[in-house]
Design a protein around this nucleic acid. Structure first.
Length: 155
DNA sequence: GCCAACGTTGGC
DNA sequence: GCCAACGTTGGC
């Protein structure tokens, strides 16, 4: 089983890479995803040990803040059954859960955020989903060569 | 705060 | 199954 690479977006005002590091065991369940494409990646393809670029979105300086890894593979997201949760979904049942999450673990924080504006300038990264016009996918696969380039040359 | 791009919903 | 209306994402 070869390792895969991913990018996961989070709004740092809600949950930043520092928040992840400060959690117990530096682990957190990635709950609240309510997009089918993103769900399918978590449910079907993300495997324990896969590496994740932790991306800060909807903030002053959007960009990649560090690295995490998958510490537990997919299981149902319990917030979809919680009526008091913003993520409650009455169509998701215990018998047939609709939403899934993985657990991620902090690996490292980059000295500075690798800014989206910089990523967009680099010809080596022009095929990344992240930099495509109109791309909004909050969980996306990253090619190994893109991951390696970012970690080895930009971090 | 604006708005383009995209996803989802629901009437037909 | 089409597609208009609506809601959301997320950079700017």
């Amino acid at each position: 089983m070869t390792k895969k690479y991913w990018l996961m977006k989070s709004e740092p005002d809600t949950f930043s890479i520092d928040d992840l590091r400060e959690r117990p065991d530096s682990k957190e369940s990635w709950d609240g995803v309510r997009n089918y494409q993103a769900r399918n990646f978590m449910r079907d393809e993300m495997k324990k040990g896969d590496l994740i670029l932790f991306y800060h979105s909807s903030c002053k300086v959007p960009g990649i803040a560090g690295v995490a890894k998958v510490s537990m593979e997919s299981h149902p997201d319990p917030t979809c059954w919680d009526k008091s949760s913003a993520y409650y979904d009455p169509k998701s049942t215990k018998e047939s859960p609709r939403w899934f999450m993985v657990e991620v673990c902090f690996k490292k924080k980059f000295k500075s955020v690798i800014e989206l504006s910089k990523l967009k300038e680099l010809p080596e990264l022009k095929d990344m989903i992240l930099v495509q016009k109109g791309s909004r996918l909050s969980i996306q696969p990253v090619k190994k060569e893109h991951y390696d380039f970012i970690v080895n040359n930009l971090a």
